[in-house]
């Protein structure tokens, strides 16, 4: 199973290192001045049509508000690329430092190395060939300047997204390691999904049997399962053991057993009520 992947990596690495650098990158510093989003698009549509097309297909172009060129790059052309490569350009829109998506990365080894070393990095380097000792958000999600960031919904990464991100891992890690990690992540997330499906099944059956209106407490537990499932996912791909585990799997266990406890209690109470003719007790 590893051999074809190995070849694939080799080819990718070969292509990435041997292709001539984009002429655009060299001329960047020649262009001085401040530009608006529309001006960026107008010019880059001719110099880099693929880049603009990628951005248009990405979640950034579809979000509300739209993440414009200037949202990440600023207006100053000479500082545009370096500025956007910093994690700071991503964090604010992605929920701030304490949001799970940011925090799961920030506590990973990648995140802490970045935190410690970012002042030493040369941010004018392109996002490839391990030009940065630790990857920031953009290194993986916009690897080699590819502007087609996630276009799928967060819990169902498209195969293409995964392949692209995996390419960035291979700048530092062996394909054998990454493919085993990815396989493990897929199983780990599937197990978390099993817990959510078990919970959803129970809640569904309960609602059917009792023609119960959506109960606030049960709905609350179900919302928690979504949050905790997402934590497992973020933990697996951002390499945060803490999100895989404490914010993820055992938290899902807790949700599931509380749902079971709630339904078990209700059923017992309803049955008691049927026997004695009294109203159910909460």
């Amino acid at each position: 199973m590893l051999r074809p992947l190995f070849l694939q990596t080799f080819l990718l690495t070969f292509l990435l290192t041997c292709l001539p650098p984009l002429a655009h990158a060299e001329s960047r510093e020649a262009v001085e001045g401040e530009f608006s989003h529309e001006e960026c698009i107008a010019c880059h549509q001719t110099t880099e049509p693929q880049l603009v097309a990628d951005w248009q297909q990405s979640v950034h172009a579809a979000s509300e508000p739209v993440a414009l060129c200037t949202s990440c790059h600023g207006r100053d052309h000479q500082r545009a690329a370096a500025r956007s490569r910093h994690n700071d350009s991503c964090v604010d829109c992605h929920g701030g430092g304490t949001s799970p998506v940011v925090h799961s990365y920030a506590t990973s080894k990648h995140g802490i190395i970045m935190q410690l070393e970012q002042k030493e990095y040369d941010w004018n380097q392109p996002l490839r060939e391990a030009n940065y000792r630790a990857p920031g958000c953009a290194y993986c999600h916009l690897h080699n300047g590819n502007h087609l960031t996630a276009k799928a919904e967060p819990l169902k990464p498209a195969e293409a997204d995964m392949d692209r991100i995996t390419t960035s891992c291979l700048d530092c890690h062996a394909i054998s390691y990454i493919s085993r990690l990815n396989a493990n992540a897929a199983s780990m997330i599937e197990i978390a999904r099993m817990k959510v499906r078990e919970a959803r099944q129970l809640v569904g059956e309960y609602a059917n049997e009792h023609q119960a209106q959506a109960d606030a407490e049960l709905t609350g537990f179900m919302q928690q399962t979504k949050k905790h499932l997402r934590n497992v996912y973020l933990g697996a791909f951002h390499q945060s053991p803490d999100y895989q585990w404490w914010h993820g799997q055992p938290a899902l266990d807790g949700d599931l057993l509380r749902i079971k406890g709630f339904i078990g209690n209700r059923q017992q109470n309803t049955d008691d009520a049927d026997k004695t003719g009294t109203k159910p007790v909460r």
Partner: peptide, 10 residues
């Protein structure tokens, strides 16, 4: 150096 430049640079 070509296969996994990150570890070599490190």
């Amino acid at each position: 150096r070509d296969m996994s430049p990150g570890i070599v640079k490190d």
